[in-house]
């Protein structure tokens, strides 16, 4: 038994000698570069799943009609933010098909007329543990935090992080903290968390 082990060790030593000089730093570099590529290109693709909005809503068309963000994204009387408009709001104009865009037809026929709310994907929903007051941030322009969808005909793809379950565009805490710090606003936990 001992003999065998001795031999094994010998082999290892032998191999080491043989290998001296073979390959040099090249394999290391190959591994390094491969990992860097995988980490920066492959990994993000793996990490996020892609989703598209149920209805191709064009913010651009609506804005061209002279509507503002606040025309549909409104505050309630208690100062809370209604966020996305519901059917009731959309149907003020789209109770029936009024235009020629097929997306509108889809909305009217599959949602509005069936009384079903559209399951919109929200790019920047904060997790449940965040209390975000739109009212307190009213003085900022929407686009300072949100994707500038106002100019888009097709809503952007929604990326969902497979690990954390959040949208890729969900604002990270450090971003909130930085802006608060720059503006002299408290960064105490409960200013944003619930």
């Amino acid at each position: 038994m001992d003999q065998k082990l001795q031999e094994l060790w010998g082999e290892v030593m032998e191999e080491k000698k043989q290998c001296k000089g073979c390959g040099g730093a090249l394999p290391f570099l190959i591994g390094f570069v491969a990992a860097v590529i995988a980490g920066w290109v492959l990994f993000p693709n793996l990490l996020y799943s892609k989703k598209v909005q149920p209805v191709r809503f064009s913010h651009k068309v609506h804005q061209e009609q002279g509507m503002e963000c606040a025309s549909c994204h409104t505050f309630r009387d208690d100062g809370s933010y209604a966020g996305l408009p519901n059917n009731e709001k959309c149907m003020e104009c789209h109770a029936d098909v009024v235009g020629s865009d097929p997306a509108e037809k889809i909305y009217v026929e599959q949602y509005a007329q069936k009384g079903k709310e559209v399951p919109w994907l929200v790019y920047q929903y904060q997790p449940d543990n965040v209390y975000f007051s739109h009212k307190a941030h009213e003085s900022f322009e929407c686009k300072e935090c949100h994707l500038e969808v106002g100019k888009m005909d097709t809503p952007p793809v929604y990326y969902e992080n497979r690990l954390s379950g959040y949208s890729k565009q969900t604002m990270k805490m450090w971003q909130c903290e930085r802006c608060h710090a720059e503006n002299g606003v408290s960064n105490a936990c409960h200013v944003c968390h619930k």
Partner: peptide, 8 residues
Amino acid sequence: MDRALFPE
């Protein structure tokens, strides 16, 4: 069998 690994 592991004698080879013992301290000197």
